[in-house]
Design a protein around this nucleic acid. Sequence first.
DNA 1: GTCTATATGAAGATAGAC
DNA 2: GTCTATCTTCATATAGAC
Lengths: 210, 210
Amino acid sequence: MTARGAEKPAGRRAGTAPQQAQPTSRREILDVAARCLRQRGYRATTLRDIAAMVGIKAGSVYYHFASKEEIVAAVMNDGVDNVFDAVTGALAALPAGATPRQRLEAAISAHLNALLAFSDYTSAGLKAFADAPEAVRQSAKPHRRRYEAVWMTLIEELAQAGATPPGVSAETLQLALLGMMNWSPEWYRPGRHSIERLAREFTSLFLRAS
Amino acid sequence: MTARGAEKPAGRRAGTAPQQAQPTSRREILDVAARCLRQRGYRATTLRDIAAMVGIKAGSVYYHFASKEEIVAAVMNDGVDNVFDAVTGALAALPAGATPRQRLEAAISAHLNALLAFSDYTSAGLKAFADAPEAVRQSAKPHRRRYEAVWMTLIEELAQAGATPPGVSAETLQLALLGMMNWSPEWYRPGRHSIERLAREFTSLFLRAS
DNA sequence: GTCTATATGAAGATAGAC
DNA sequence: GTCTATCTTCATATAGAC
């Protein structure tokens, strides 16, 4: 899995020079598309916009991709794989004897960071999914299922350790937790909220007093 | 505040008769627009679609409304006022000595019912808000603030009664709770989930063992 | 690889007849 | 109140020159 993220394309254009000479890469187009999709959603993101931001004309995009749907599907799927890597990586990096609280907080923190700070791809995928054509949504399904399984496994592990609140099913726990996090782009403001603090507080909600 | 909801327009067209004779009302157009906006979002909802579903031609819509934005703003604002009425009504209907759990569960239940079952307006407003033009979003602000204040008040009341989990600020509590609920249209399926059960389980997450 | 030019099809909105 | 007809704009996508 290669690098995917919110980083700007390599500094090909020196300073403010508006013209370019180097050829455009697929990744460069995807980076710009992810940023657009995140900000504006599926319908409001146009190939003209993307092309202009990359420094080429709209027609030239079709040298790299067969359709808008192909671009959106690539962004969405990279986005899900992105959080998947972030969350599984964070869990794997914990010491063997980590507490339920440490594991849940690490996973929540990784998810929030991908969504709110690191990856235009991840937030673009969330925002564009509902409006994307059926074919795009279908192609995203396996990626999403794989990611959801990570959370289901984690929650069941916590439940078996007796760490989750009583009277709430694992399924509801998962839906509530992901919903709480996935809605956060609607209200999160970088200067106003601290991701680490949010992760800590969100974690408290899903563990019985510990 | 007049009736607003997901009810189909009055049975003007007998049975399956495709044609109509009676004049179209503003409310009828808004009902159809709300349904469209809920299903397809702002950009994918066209005046042509709305007109066709109401039984008139696209141009005729402009007899009733000055623009698409005016329609969307009306739907969104009615939608917020809708949940506001539902939640404040549910709280007011409780007996004086209701417990924190009863009050929170009543509010959550009212919100979920508006969002998932009763009101196309409410869910349309949530779905279309992010993509709507700035002018529409601005007009929604006072309605949204008034509604959010209801939750802030309720949560602070619960916090003072010592019913909320320790170590989580009232602001985070509110953002987490509304996010959890507002994301539910993404996964809720009428046959598969029970709104009353969800309300009960969601409530448990936000109250310390009681 | 990128360009220009263009085909094709909507969309929102308006004018004026009925 | 609703229609038809149309203006204008902007979208995805294609063809072929450079």
